[in-house]
Design a protein around this nucleic acid. Structure first.
Lengths: 195, 195
DNA sequence: TAAATCCTACCTACTAGTAGGAAGGCAAAT
DNA sequence: ATTTGCCTTCCTACTAGTAGGTAGGATTTA
């Protein structure tokens, strides 16, 4: 499966795992070169500059994310279930360390020194995720599954922040289980107010 | 005031502002050198290695943070007020860009490739902040100011995650106001369930 | 044959870190 | 009082290694 992946995809795969480990400044072409057994210059053939590489990487990540969210929407019409699936996805990624943190969350922390072509794409991902969560909360509120104490837009921002913060805490404490603990506490706040 | 600060303090000040901008791998001795008009070798005199520099920096940051939190506790016995002051402090830091994000939150994102002497200190800060928030929430719950839907420890983790995530979102969107919007939404969830 | 892919070999700029000396402050010995 | 010597601070000059990136040739694929 990995052996028949194209070289450029392999490059992006490795780059992504290096970015989630150490951010934009935490990896080099030499690192990728060593990881997939290809020379530095060959990587430059596929991605002339580092900024371009990461820009393409974020585009690919955003596409995958949007496809994934769309899939969740289509699989279940229950907003509560969709939210559970979304958080379950991340729980799995964090538990098996396949993607211990959102690529864009990682890059967002370095926003101030990111090349503009990367920064703008990270912003776009944040916007699209916020929009997805907003419509999810809106629907959930209409179906009386969630009780919102703020505008759906603001609640979505709060939820997104919780998820990103939970990833950070899980990483800081070296405890993957902490992610779902925090996420569940947040869900409880969305559902509890009724009782 | 800055002119009578010791050289090593000036080094730490600059290093801190560089770290919150771009993380551990986002600054170099040359950057500090250029910023305070001292040679690279002189910085190595004060802090032999980069890991040592950042370790001392985190120690200083943690001391300042703990002193600040203690001060908030002493200034007001009202947990609700203490929480407001804590969030107000960060709102100001983010608004005037003096400290747009917690140093340890920044470093935590790079946890996996941090020197152990730095990583352990970052963990310690997270623990001490979580402990402070836990006792704050516990007190608030006893005084019927907060309604907790989970153990105080878990609620504290959720709150801390929200704060860190809010910092990240404010940065990603380039909108300092977003921090307090998210923070207020979180406070509302702590207070609202009663009605 | 032509394009895509990957290579060797190289570039300049920068990385953290070191060796060793100059300048100044300070305190004890003269 | 002045000299001696130590200590701190900062310097110039340098190291080995790494950063992103390039030129141009070889090999593979269509």
């Amino acid at each position: 499966m990995n052996s028949m992946a194209s070289t450029s995809d392999k490059i992006l795969d490795i780059a992504q795992s290096l970015i989630v480990a150490g951010g934009y400044n935490g990896f080099s072409y030499a690192d990728i070169s060593a990881a997939i057994g290809i020379r530095k210059a060959s990587i430059h053939h596929h991605f002339p500059t580092k900024a371009e590489l990461v820009a393409v990487l974020v585009d690919r990540y955003r596409q995958q994310a949007e496809a994934g969210l769309k899939f969740l929407q289509e699989r279940s019409s229950d907003p509560s279930e969709q939210l559970q699936s979304y958080l379950g996805f991340w729980e799995k990624c964090i538990r098996d360390a396949s993607l211990p943190v959102c690529v864009c969350a990682m890059l967002a922390s370095e926003m101030q020194m990111l090349p503009e072509e990367v920064a703008s794409r990270v912003r776009t991902h944040f916007q699209s995720l916020a929009a997805w969560l907003t419509s999810l909360l809106k629907e959930g509120a209409e179906q009386d599954l969630f009780r919102l104490s703020r505008r759906p837009e603001d609640e979505a921002q709060a939820l997104m922040a919780s998820v990103h913060g939970a990833m950070l805490s899980a990483r800081a404490f070296g405890d993957p289980a902490l992610f779902i603990t925090i996420a569940n506490a947040q869900i409880a706040k969305l559902q509890a107010p009724a009782r």
